[in-house]
């Protein structure tokens, strides 16, 4: 970032917030259905690697994204089956997924690409040319039209998820499954099946979010999800388990990341130390939010 401008900052914030927002929206399904979405982190990492691997092998970014989505979903499905069919604790199974993902990625990466490190791919595409022209608009131009394809895909997926929560029977049914009373049972709904579906949606969303992370960098870097899955989980609670709030919290974190990155451009700024700030700020926001809620009730 040679010349730092406000519009570019907005664009960076959106780009950083989008994957978190998508994963958080996905995780919202699981949370609404009454289960914990601990495995977002693992799904994201698996998605990132699968996207890079598939793009490298097939040369098609579209297939890469599809693979990312599939990998995230597979991880979540594993958690869902362990929790809902084998009776495992969903928190523990989620942790297992988060331990599994990096190990599996490393093993596969070594087997396929003969490296445990960075896997570069250059087939990820930029946004369509027509759109690129609009990127010259002030403030919102770069944010809305100057992003790479991954961003638009995320926006699309996020819209789709929000739509599913808000406009289809599934959203209501998931919510009922998460209720403490027997509403779902009395309505003849299969709670366990609904939860599995919710896990899968969350995994797919997180996988796609991971793919877009990789697309943004143009490579897979081990550990590149770096806690974003957990942040997505925090965003769900910070956002009060409502889609709009979750989006707000996610992009809030995205902008904190963008702010930290932008501050790194300043001379003598402690680059990595600034990256710690978004986490601390989120923790403080969470505490303030909870304290305020406690005073209300």
């Amino acid at each position: 970032m040679q010349s730092f401008g406000f519009d570019l900052f907005v664009a960076a914030g959106c780009a950083a917030g989008a994957p978190i927002a998508l994963a958080a929206l996905g995780g919202l399904f699981t949370e609404l259905s009454g289960a914990l979405s601990v495995a977002l982190e693992g799904s994201m990492l698996a998605g990132a690697f699968a996207a890079v691997a598939a793009t490298r092998i097939t040369g098609s970014a579209a297939l890469g994204f599809a693979a990312g989505l599939g990998a995230g979903l597979a991880i979540a499905l594993l958690v869902a089956l362990c929790a809902e069919r084998l009776g495992a604790d969903v928190f523990v199974a989620g942790l297992a997924a988060n331990i599994l993902a990096p190990g599996l990625v490393s093993v596969v990466s070594e087997a396929v690409f003969k490296t445990k490190g960075v896997v570069v791919v250059d087939a990820f595409m930029r946004g369509p040319q027509g759109v690129m022209a609009l990127a010259k608009l002030p403030v919102v131009g770069p944010a809305l039209f100057g992003q790479n394809a991954a961003f638009y895909l995320l926006a699309l997926a996020a819209a789709l998820l929000a739509f599913v929560v808000g406009a289809t029977p599934l959203g209501n049914r998931l919510r009922a499954a998460g209720e403490r009373n027997e509403a779902a049972l009395a309505a003849g709904l299969d709670r366990s099946r609904l939860r599995i579906i919710a896990h899968c949606l969350a995994g797919a969303a997180a996988g796609l979010a991971g793919a877009s992370l990789a697309a943004g960098v143009g490579a897979f870097v081990p550990g590149m999800s770096s806690g974003r899955g957990w942040i997505a989980l925090v965003a769900i609670y910070l956002g009060g388990r409502r889609p709009a709030g979750v989006l707000l919290a996610s992009f809030g974190f995205g902008f904190l990341i963008a702010l930290a990155s932008a501050a790194q451009a300043l001379k003598g700024a402690p680059a990595e130390l600034l990256l710690a700030l978004p986490y601390a700020a989120t923790a403080i926001a969470l505490i303030i939010g909870r304290a305020a809620r406690g005073r209300l009730t």
């Binding site: 594993l78 084998l86 495992a88 942790l95 297992a96 190990g103």
Partner: peptide
Amino acid sequence: DASAIMKAAVLFLVT
């Protein structure tokens, strides 16, 4: 790193 997969398997099944 295969050990991570074994550990995950233990954890998936232990509860």
